[in-house]
Amino acid sequence: MAGTATPLNQIRPLARYGAVLTVGLGICLFVLCASPFVHAGQRYAYPFDAEEDLLTQAELFTSWHSAVVEHANSRNQLYACAQDKSACRGRLRSFNRMLEKADTLSAEEQIELVNYYINRSRYDDDHRRRIENGSGVRIGWQRNHWSSLYTFLIKGGDCEDYASSKYFMLRELGHPAEDLRVVVARSRELGGVHAVLAVKRPDGTVWLLDSDNRIRKRSHRGYGFIYAMNEYFVWDHRDDYLRP
């Protein structure tokens, strides 16, 4: 019926504007702030089989591929300690002992051993590294430095080095590359971008090996996956829109 008063009509015009605008802004802010974690929450497990996220070959990701090459070139130094005790710097002696005795463990025990063993290494925040030309003049900064296993056992490292070293150590134990990925993700708990190792098990479950000693075997809630790589490929797990 025309002219029937409604509750909204009883509120002053300015207040009505304010109310609608506030509700609209609130919805926008909620969507903007929650969307990274909404997507993370929707995929509680790391999407190991999301082949649509496959981006390119690992060689194109030069900072990571350098670590893969460095690891391959330093394997002799890793094992030299077993023959020559003078070559046993840092944690090389315990590393060789772990590899020697890990044959007696099951695959699950090996994964657990590697997680704990690597996590005991010295934490060293590598910050940014200078990139210099041949004359020693700085020409740029390298944000992340992926460490080889040999360098990590000597000097320690930070979270991306923990993840890459677990990858290389499990590879040395014979775990196939297609079941392993170094994963970079936003960590809600740590409030920043973090690196972990994802291990795919024969039953299809995915274990996340974190540097906090926990192995997450069921829910991976709290991680917003960004990208991942093994020695052969790189996967891009970002949403449709890039958020710097």
């Binding site: 981006l55 990701f61 704990y116 934490y123 923990y162 740590l190 971008v193 973090h194 540097s211």
Partner: peptide, 21 residues
């Protein structure tokens, strides 16, 4: 896309918790 990936700074500090094998 690789370049944008490489620009993401992996810097979250870790906090270890006591876990028993």
């Amino acid at each position: 896309r690789i370049r944008t990936i490489d620009q993401i700074n992996v810097s979250a500090e870790t906090r270890q918790v006591a876990e028993t094998p």
